[in-house]
Amino acid sequence: MLYVTIILDGAGVGDAPDAQAYGDRGADTLGHVVRQQRPALPNLTRWGLGHLVDGLDAVDAPAASWGRLTERAAGKDSTTGHWALAGLVLETPFPTYPDGFPDDVVAAFCERAGVDGVLSNAPASGTTVIAELGDEHQRTGRPIVYTSADSVFQIAAHTDTIPLDELYRMCRVARKEVMVGEHAVGRVIARPFEGEPGAYQRISAKRKDYSLAPHGPALLDRLQGAGVRTVCVGKIAALFGGAGVGEEIKTAGNADGIQKTLAAIREAAASGQPTFVWTNLVDFDELYGHRNDAPGYAAALEAFDAALPDLEAALPPGAVLTLTADHGNDPTYPGSDHTRERVPVLRFDGTPGRDLGTADTFAAHAADVARHFGMEWAGPTAGGMSRGV
């Protein structure tokens, strides 16, 4: 038995009922990208994406079933979204810092990390903050500490100024000793960069996320308890702090993630062992959504679309491949942060597709995966994304 979920990170479909409360009224990531950029998406269209996104043909007999998930959890960050997809729905949002971190938090970090100060301490774009402060960082040796609209404590450092091992140590200190209690952010993130002033480049492959441990057993833990092998491709394992992860496969962007997902599918098919493969394709969010790059987003969609037939063909009989997302990140929307949106579901299982409707919680995904492996699922699963829900 095999179930594969691929997260198109940040690929929302608009229409969240509480979008205005998050300042995101009118955001529609896939809709705006499709209508403005007109990407060629023949395979996603064949699967039924046109039933969810205006601007694509709504084919009469899609290869996949289609639907939407509504975020019930408080927040619109990656950790909140992935935890909800795993059945852990947050009632209280992770703390955020629109005015930067309080003085006592910064002082505690400096003391425990052994530095005499930090630079920035404000919400910022990662590429912008290193361009503006990278030279000062190299002169002073002070780490660049910044946040965003998400619940994150990010530390950027040039590898010639603060070596990777030292940067990672600082992040562990921040995670375990500083960002705790009322300041328990969803993630502490190491953001190494390299290069010369005016040409700094982040080293995405060396980024490390230090996530808050889930507050209870989630989908991955429960699958492992039922004897299902869990394979996490991309940043999934980091978002759960490794809880329930049988195998972590790191990636260097979408193309690498797709190839490693294909390899994981083929390995699972050959072994015959019950396996859940969970992949995150981060480029949609990190490279294009946050950078307001709608043409780049469209090109990434085209590249994924071109890979879809290979993913489909690799599936053994009886397997399921679901495409969904963790939040929105509309590159056409003002600002550079995540957007509160519903997310799409395209569920391929080799049977004729049908309308799955709109679930009122991301946790419907967890229930669907559990059901595939013959497990009972307790928790919020109203709406639904599979037959019988």
Rank of each mutant, 00 (worst) to 15 (best):
R222N: 10
K260I: 06
I258R: 14
Q224T: 08
R229L: 04
E286T: 06
E267P: 03
R229T: 03
A252T: 10
K208Q: 07
A264G: 13
L262S: 13
F284D: 01
L223F: 13
G253M: 13
G216V: 00
E196K: 11
H215A: 07
R207F: 02
V245R: 10
I258V: 15
E196N: 07
G246F: 14
D209C: 00
K260T: 07
T275S: 12
S271R: 13
G225F: 06
A270N: 12
D293Y: 08
A205F: 12
A205Y: 12
V282A: 15
I203R: 14
D256A: 09
K250D: 04
G198E: 06
V277F: 03
G257K: 05
V233P: 11
Y288S: 07
E286P: 00
F284K: 01
Y288W: 11
R207L: 00
Y210T: 01
V228F: 03
V228T: 01
G242R: 09
G225I: 01
A199F: 05
R222S: 11
H290Q: 04
I236F: 11
A270G: 09
V277T: 08
A199K: 06
G242F: 10
I203V: 12
L220F: 15
D256M: 11
L220Q: 10
V282H: 14
H290R: 03
Y210K: 03
G216P: 01
F284M: 04
D283W: 06
G257E: 02
K235V: 00
G246W: 14
A269S: 12
V228L: 07
S204W: 12
R266N: 13
A205C: 08
P274R: 08
Q259C: 06
L223Y: 10
L220G: 02
A255H: 15
K206D: 14
E247C: 09
F240H: 15
P217R: 10
A243D: 13
G225N: 03
G195A: 02
N280K: 04
A255V: 13
